[in-house]
């Protein structure tokens, strides 16, 4: 009899746990199906030398960050100091994807805020963005030395993201290769 009385209490408790977990999740962070897959190929003009191409080949050979940004993107401005830190303080090799931007705006933005990128690919019509499953700039991918996507960060990178997720993963990947 007593056990029977506990059944609805148990159901409510289970429901509360499920709902509480649901509250802590961010519905905007859609898990990328690209994790564990080879980086989608691309060949795009360079921002500073439009007659030359950046391709996915530049993602191989070392652990690389692939940062999707645009001058019109307010959150990119917010994260930019952290991307600079990754390049200058931690010596990360970073490829930028300038997503659906105007070249003049992009150049002005980098000269104003600083350029942490080893190369910037210009994705003017956003097609490479679609291939990479980009839906909310800024996005940052960690790519291992074999050119496989290992992690995707959606939204601005914060100092805590660097310490907790990106750097540990980069160190692990670099340790693995030698």
């Amino acid at each position: 009899m007593k056990a029977r009385f506990l059944i609805p209490v148990g159901i409510v408790a289970a429901l509360l746990v499920v709902l509480a977990v649901g509250l802590t999740l961010n519905p905007r962070e859609v898990p990328s199906p690209l994790i564990g897959k080879a980086a989608p190929p691309f060949a795009l003009p360079r921002l500073y030398q439009p007659d030359q191409l950046v391709t996915d080949a530049s993602l191989k050979g070392r652990v690389t960050l692939f940062n999707v940004w645009a001058s019109w993107c307010v959150a990119c401005r917010e994260e930019h100091a952290q991307i600079e830190r990754l390049a200058k303080e931690f010596g990360m090799y970073i490829i930028g994807l300038n997503y659906k931007d105007e070249t003049q705006d992009a150049l002005g933005w980098l000269s104003h805020f600083g350029n942490p990128y080893s190369a910037v690919a210009v994705d003017a019509d956003g097609r490479v963005g679609i291939d990479w499953g980009v839906y909310g700039v800024p996005e940052t991918f960690v790519i291992d030395s074999a050119g496989v996507i290992r992690y995707k960060h959606i939204g601005p990178v914060k100092a805590a993201d660097i310490e907790n997720r990106i750097l540990p993963l980069v160190r692990e990947l670099e340790g693995g290769q030698g």
Partner: peptide, 19 residues
Amino acid sequence: MRYWIAALCLGFGGLTLAE
């Protein structure tokens, strides 16, 4: 967090592809 979502919805500006 909230304002970059707002920025996303508002800020995806200008550029459109071909017809």
